[in-house]
Write a protein that binds this DNA or RNA. Sequence first.
DNA 1: CGAAGTTTTGATCAAATTCAAGAGTAGTGG
DNA 2: CCACTACTCTTGAATTTGATCAAAACTTCG
Lengths: 255, 255
Amino acid sequence: MAIGPSPSAGPNLRTISLWAPDNPLGVRHQLLNEEQKARIAKIASVVRFKKGDQIYLRGDAAEAAFNLISGVVATFLNSDHVTAFLYNGDVFGLSEEGRYTNSAKATTSVTAYKIPIHALRRLLSADPDLDVHIISKLCEELRQAQRHAFILAQQHAVARVAMFLELQEHLQAARGEPNSEIFLLMDRSAIAEFVGLSFAAVSRAFRTLVTQKVILLRDRRHVRVADRPALERLADEQSVGNAPRHQPRRPTIAT
Amino acid sequence: MAIGPSPSAGPNLRTISLWAPDNPLGVRHQLLNEEQKARIAKIASVVRFKKGDQIYLRGDAAEAAFNLISGVVATFLNSDHVTAFLYNGDVFGLSEEGRYTNSAKATTSVTAYKIPIHALRRLLSADPDLDVHIISKLCEELRQAQRHAFILAQQHAVARVAMFLELQEHLQAARGEPNSEIFLLMDRSAIAEFVGLSFAAVSRAFRTLVTQKVILLRDRRHVRVADRPALERLADEQSVGNAPRHQPRRPTIAT
DNA sequence: CGAAGTTTTGATCAAATTCAAGAGTAGTGG
DNA sequence: CCACTACTCTTGAATTTGATCAAAACTTCG
């Protein structure tokens, strides 16, 4: 049952290094050593949520942060705009001025470590190494958010869905899961909320991709990429025609 | 000439606290003490860019991070999608695996501290306090990125522009600048790239807001909010009609 | 099997992109 | 100071795309 390399149980925080310039492709490092894991585990409790449960609401006093063990969590800014999907190892529930800035909801059934915020705070000041790791993780989430914005900035529905699929595939690979097929853990409506389209538009985009033989749907949740160049072409297809009028469209002076 | 409280020159990093639950509204704290400023200033150099200059390109080896002193910088994922506008005190040029993950371009003329990455790294490991601050800052940027995504997820052009205006106003207030009027430092085309619309659509949205007497344009770059309730109404106007079919649209179970 | 929840698909309609031209602003140099 | 040029911005008309409404096909699960 165990998927991917999980050398030891307990809190889990993996990310891409800030510095190391020599890493095949986006494989993540475990950021916590055994001692740190133990220390966090001591102050954390394991909690469980059913599919659809609200974990916390934006604006609530932030009593705890979470470290996801299994399942998928979606975070929202309001009730129908997904800001991120979170997977094993992800951290959520960081606050601003002591209040949650997102709502979080279980997309599937979920288990997670719950870490009281005051304990986390003590832990951070006690262990200087820990927060460098947290910085890496935050940088990664920041880039994720920017990628999300990038998807949303795409003009065409197919482009958004294509980018979404690439993103999922990439995340799956980064988690070390078998990557011959993309497994979508969320339903069409969650995807729609994430990519900022209606329901129907997502469905149509999938169908378009299928009829153009870019992807194969084994079932509604298992996607196989049949024509990667085409997928990339669709995903990269440039968005809005803010025609650079004066600049004679130099092809981005690559060094 | 000096705008806002700038108790001492030098590196500048302000943000909203992670914990403190008692803060009027989004006013930021200076995160660096004099000693830290001095230490950073020692390893940093001041650099200048003209309007339109490319500061670095996505994918380049990251040699330095920057702390903005004056002017506005826009970051891009590719050449025509703005991921953020950066102002005084903002940090940019954080890398992934030693390479820049964004491109950065001067929207106005710009001065900034340039901090070599290796020096920054040494600094971080030497001063444990520093990275808690950096964590706060990153959290803030993360929320910014999520807000950006939220704007992009809006359906209607006016809603996006309305939210954009609110965001600018909010940022301006957070920087401590006079807030009776919104001063847009970027041109329509930069706004269009940020909110993910065409040129023309942004222009039309402005016009709509003006004719509906929601805003007043003193000139193209000075906006005064004439009817705040209306502006908020437009900005909040809920996006996509992914009609929650089963859930009978509870009004977000506020605690 | 039937019922509730999902997903696909179709037809209509509103809104934004595109293309294109015209109005407004700067900035330059005579 | 005004005319000239280069930009930026606004506005209009035609076209495309996705939202919306609605119904039908498919899944799940009790």
